[in-house]
């Protein structure tokens, strides 16, 4: 009974996580420019991956493997925050450069 409940919860978490990834990708198409697209990618993927990791945790063979999954999530968070920041900064400085010339 408990096993079935956990499996059901896992399926729910994994499906929701994938949903957030899909919405993040949708954002790439719907949003108008680079920085707004970053919003969709960082936030939706952060939550999506978090839910997927949470959904997979009960299937992990041991504590160490579970912690490794959480570590993967944290490392992805750090990289996505850092790369988003760098792209946003690059966009911002190129905007300041081109004002006056192009617009």
């Amino acid at each position: 009974m408990i096993d079935a409940l956990i499996s059901a919860l896992q399926v729910l978490l994994l499906a929701t996580g994938c949903g957030f990834f899909a919405v993040g990708t949708l954002g790439l198409f719907r949003l108008p420019d680079a920085v707004t697209r970053l919003h969709a990618l960082t936030k939706a993927d952060n939550l999506g991956l978090g839910l997927i990791v949470l959904g997979l945790l009960p299937s992990m063979p041991g504590v160490a493997a579970g912690l490794k999954m959480i570590l993967i999530w944290l490392v992805v968070l750090a990289t996505s925050a850092t790369s988003a920041h760098l792209i946003a900064r690059a966009v911002e400085s190129s905007e300041t450069d081109s004002t006056g010339r192009s617009e």
């Binding site: 920085v35 707004t36 970053l38 919003h39 960082t42 936030k43 952060n46 968070l77 750090a78 996505s80 925050a81 850092t82 988003a84 920041h85 946003a88 900064r89 966009v91 911002e92």
Partner: peptide, 25 residues
């Protein structure tokens, strides 16, 4: 700066000294 990039509505675009510029959705 990194926390704000991952939480609602903001991405930190520029951190200069104590001045933090945020891009808001």
């Amino acid at each position: 700066a990194n926390t704000l990039s991952l939480t609602p509505g903001t991405i930190s675009a520029n951190l200069k000294g104590d001045c933090l510029e945020l891009h808001c959705l």
